[in-house]
């Protein structure tokens, strides 16, 4: 009775060719997304979160390439779809809220036209064509709490504030009632009251149509409030995967621990400076054998962490990639403590 996940990503690798060889920005990422669930993706800026999401719609910018792995929607390979079939999936079964609303909205069309066009393309069979599609676009704007949606629908992207553009993107993505929503920093540009409204709108749609959400965000509080499970990326690799509660209660990976410690909420009482992870992420993580975090890791075990990263299943649903959790790492670590 094993049903395949709605979306599954296996061993995904993405590279950008360059003068000095390929730079690998996503390296062997695997995860599954089930109907109705919300999975958070957090991690260092530049760790490959957006590229992972973009690859699911085959939208990696040139000259980037998927160089390995599989992506399947309901068991069907997305990487093998024809261009035509792909266009049906994009914005239809899988919708994306892009990190940069300004570059993904067309400056020469009003926002209402842009949403209506998406509705016509994907929901024509429901009779949403012509004027009906326009009305649906206005409704979509109303649902993301844009005041005076009729007037706003006739405006161009540059006439809106940053947060309004963001909401237009969200309205467009949700207007097509997708099975999978890839949301890349969907609420970063929004104030917390609108953020709360949008997140509850997303939850509502999840209950209604069983939409699955991949939520990329730097906002750990949003993750804590909305995600069932969390994936922690570092330098293109999944470092830790756990249910949200366990991750916040007991982060296991030194990188995850460093991330949580950086929260202003977790700063020592009265501290004037915030904690942060010292050092820089590697420029070309693909070139590094062993743990890509080791140069910054406070718990590094010399002689061990240079070895290929292990994948350790701590308990069902809890995965970690760190030498501290292997046989040899354990012994070395306890030696070091003595």
């Amino acid at each position: 009775m094993l049903t395949p996940p709605l979306l599954s990503v296996e061993n995904l690798t993405i590279a950008f060719p360059g003068k000095t060889g390929d730079s690998i920005v996503v390296d062997g990422v695997s995860f599954a997304l089930n109907r109705g669930e919300t999975v958070g993706v957090v991690g260092e800026s530049g760790s490959g979160k957006s590229m992972t999401a973009l690859s699911i719609l085959r939208l990696i910018p040139e000259p980037g390439r998927v160089t390995g792995g599989t992506i399947a929607l309901d068991g069907e390979s997305i990487l093998a779809l024809t261009e035509k079939a792909l266009r049906r999936v994009r914005g239809g079964r899988i919708a994306m809220i892009f990190q940069d609303p300004m570059t993904s909205l067309n400056p020469v069309f009003t926002i209402g036209e842009q949403i209506a066009e998406a509705v016509r393309l994907h929901r024509a069979e429901e009779g949403l064509t012509g004027k009906a599609a326009w009305d649906e676009a206005v409704n979509a704007l109303r649902r993301v709490h844009i005041a005076e949606p009729e007037r706003r629908a006739k405006q161009f992207p540059h006439e809106l504030s940053g947060g309004m553009r963001q909401r237009v993107m969200i309205a467009m993505a949700l207007a097509c009632r997708p099975d999978v929503l890839l949301a890349d920093e969907p609420t970063t540009a929004l104030d917390v009251t609108v953020q709360a409204q949008i997140l509850s709108l997303i939850r509502e749609l999840q209950r209604e149509i069983g939409m699955a959400v991949l939520l990329i965000t730097h906002d750990l509080a949003v993750v804590a409030e909305t995600c069932d499970r969390v994936i922690v990326l570092y330098a293109g690799k999944v470092m830790e995967m756990a249910d949200a509660q366990s991750l916040f209660d007991d982060p296991k990976h030194p990188y995850t621990q460093g991330l949580l410690a950086s929260l202003p909420e977790n700063a020592p009482q009265g501290a004037t400076r915030l904690t942060y992870i010292k050092g820089q992420p590697p420029t070309n993580p693909g070139k590094i054998t062993g743990c890509p975090f080791r140069a910054r890791c406070p718990k590094v075990i010399p002689g061990v962490c240079e070895k290929p990263l292990p994948t350790v299943q701590l308990e069902p649903g809890r995965m970690i990639r760190c030498h501290l959790f292997t046989e040899s790492g354990n012994t070395e670590a306890s030696h070091a403590e003595r």
Binding site: H145, I146, A147, E148, R151, V192, T193, Q195, A196, Q197, S200, D219, L220, A221, V222, V223, A224, E225, A244, Q245, F248, D249, L260, L263, E265, N266
Partner: peptide, 24 residues
């Protein structure tokens, strides 16, 4: 409305009702 970085304190927030009026 501010979210809290702790899943055990997850709550359904009392939302701010209504929409902002238009600046016009």
């Amino acid at each position: 409305s501010a979210p809290i970085p702790d899943p055990s304190r997850r709550r359904e927030r009392a939302p701010l009702e209504g929409d902002p009026p238009s600046p016009v």
